[in-house]
Design a protein around this nucleic acid. Structure first.
Lengths: 380, 380
DNA sequence: TCTCCCTTGTTCAGGGATTGAACGTACACC
DNA sequence: GGTGTACGTTCAATCCCTGAACAAGGGAGA
């Protein structure tokens, strides 16, 4: 079946659809050259696709037909739960963002409250954009914790206790009556940076999100690598100090307890009072020596993890996202210094550590990317 | 072209050839069920393959025809340089090993001497097996260090100083007049275990070789994952103790300086005199409390690295090879204990750490596997 | 030993898919 | 205005897979 003639036709249909989607608009002759198919085949397949409503055809001078992707109807929604915020975006399937909103939100709260808040935000955005709820085709949902790829529920119940045992995708889907895809916020950030940001076009990328916590994700051959139980890329819980502080994951001295935003906030509280990560970064940019120091220290701890990553995966590019990434060189230079000292030299030379380009919108944009191009699936 | 009808036929021919090669011998009906093709298609393709000399058909009771891979002509050679040995094997392309020999050898010696020794061993094996040198189709060469996948030369000149700047594949190929494929010994060990050993049939595998040094390799989707510069999987040089001993890689406190066989030998020298890793393991199995302790300690250090590996890649299976692996549970139990303590719980639960099944032959068998099925290529 | 039933491999007609060649058309350039 | 070129469509030819029918052989049970 997988190798029958109909499968071949299906393959070629998909090939043409993909080529059209990537290039935007093409004539049939260009399509034939790019795909290697004969003009005759292209002709028949294009007609099929037009009848199926998957592409649109417009005259373009002479016999030329311009084939373009069908204007996708409907909208998609991205929802991103951070440790302390909730951000929702509404976008056309063509990637244009129609409306976006973020509110402070404590993810420690129970799941139902979180999902209700998200639902309210979505409804607000729909109204603001003048779009009916029935237009929503899919929702991408990001959560700051490991997701079991099989069941769709949290892989570790200790990280987001309020969400233990909940199937967030099913629950939100039930409320909205729309298919919901759930994923780790770091996975979504990686997807976003690879689609529009600092890792655009790269197929082998490591991404670290340093916000309140520390998450990470790996793209191998352009696909999210999830590992056996969806815990791949959990760099935030790599052990840096065996005798360190207890971590919410249940272990001790995780990277997150040393370089997570929460730890940095705690460190400067005696001298600077209660601040946010963003404020901390701002102060550091302003020259505050204490803030600079805690960020540099965090960078050194992160460097240990990135060095491990280099020795294991030897990536060519590591993108740093999350609120702390805005510290830029204040954070990245120490990372590089430690990587140069701890990673095997050839791997240290190969790696390029850069700041993400999408800032705090990475998660929600990734959620959009996840449902806009649904074929970005796990490698496993 | 790539999607034409003839390409489809070619795909199916390849599918059948591969299925036959993997299973050894099959009837056509089994083939049809396994490939999902119809019996009619299998019938015609099998006839084509027979006419092309790619498979052999033997009667097997009733209408049954037994399809088996054509007896491939020629032989392949595997060469495995360890830190302290040189092992060479001669095999038919059908995987049957014809002759094999190992000698002690110091890899610290200069490359020309090593290659000369390998050449002499190969010639000896050819004589013993009564095979002419012209029968050699390819040579697989394993070296205990990172190989740059682009250039084929050592990625880090400090690890095998005697081999710096040498292109071992080209050099040995020149001497023998045969194509030579070079690879890291850990990569080859992983390949061997995945082909015939403890990871048979698995597509996502991490492999660690603990001999004199510590090497590692990762199979993702059945392919060797090499990373940007071929340094992926260098778990031996992950930093365990930032203030630890200097390592030959130039850094400090690498896993290898704590869990490598050389370190263990050094540790027991005061009490036990000069021993080999194998002798050390033997003594431990015999109940020697000191040897058991150093092995357990090594296991705990290895566990730190495996825990990092779990948090980054979340593998389902980790195979431990090399001489120290023969310690079995004496080594693996401490690894598991540390993994359970340091890795994120869902990743720790998912991973299964087992001893390799191929022992000291893993490297040389992997070298054979590398050239017997040349399509096992890098993922990048 | 014999019969029935199942499995196996082959053959053949039928339906799909791709291709090369031929053809009509419209623009561009001289 | 004429000619050339590129483009898209159509059609017969070719190739491939599949389902059904069929012959052949072995195994279980009586």
């Amino acid at each position: 079946m997988a190798n029958s003639l109909t499968a071949l036709r299906e393959t070629n249909r998909r090939l043409i659809t993909e080529t059209v989607r990537k290039s935007g608009a093409l004539t049939q002759a260009q399509l034939a050259r790019q795909t290697g198919l004969s003009p005759a085949t292209v002709s028949t397949i294009v007609r099929e696709l037009r009848d199926a409503g998957l592409v649109e055809i417009s005259q373009a001078g002479g016999r030329r037909h311009l084939i373009s992707p069908a204007r996708e109807t409907g909208v998609v929604v991205g929802v991103d739960f951070g440790h302390s915020h909730l951000r929702v975006a509404l976008a056309e399937r063509s990637h244009r963002v129609l409306a976006e909103e973020a509110i402070p939100f404590d993810v420690g709260a129970r799941a139902p409250e979180g999902l209700s808040a998200a639902e309210r935000l979505i409804i607000g955005l729909l109204e603001r954009a003048g779009v009916s709820g029935t237009e929503i085709k899919a929702v991408g949902l990001g959560l700051p914790g490991p997701i079991d790829p099989q069941t769709g529920i949290m892989g570790s119940s200790t990280i987001l206790p309020g969400w233990a045992g909940v199937d967030p995708a099913a629950e939100l889907g039930r409320r909205l009556g729309v298919p919901v895809v759930v994923d780790n916020d770091a996975n979504l950030g990686a997807l976003a940076e690879a689609t529009w940001g600092a890792a655009k076009g790269r197929r082998e990328v490591a991404y670290m999100k340093i916000g309140t916590g520390v998450g990470a994700s790996i793209l191998i051959n352009g696909l999210l690598y999830r590992g056996a139980t969806g815990a791949a890329g959990e760099l935030g819980h790599i052990t840096i100090d065996e005798n360190g502080r207890l971590c919410r994951c249940g272990n001790r001295g995780c990277l997150e307890t040393l370089a997570g935003g929460q730890q940095l906030i705690d460190l400067v509280r005696p001298t600077h009072g209660q601040v946010t990560v963003s404020r901390l970064v701002e102060l550091a940019h302003g020259g505050d020596i204490g803030c600079r120091r805690v960020i540099a220290d965090a960078g050194r701890h992160l460097g240990v993890a990135v060095a491990s990553l280099c020795n294991i995966l030897n990536p060519g590019l590591v993108v740093i996202g999350g609120a702390l990434a805005e510290a830029g060189p204040l954070l990245i230079d120490p990372i590089m210094a430690v990587v140069g000292r701890l990673a095997i030299p050839s791997a240290a030379r190969a790696v390029n550590v850069v700041k993400g380009e999408l800032g705090e919108r990475a998660g929600v944009l990734g959620a959009l990317a996840r449902v806009q191009s649904p074929n970005v699936e796990s490698a496993l």
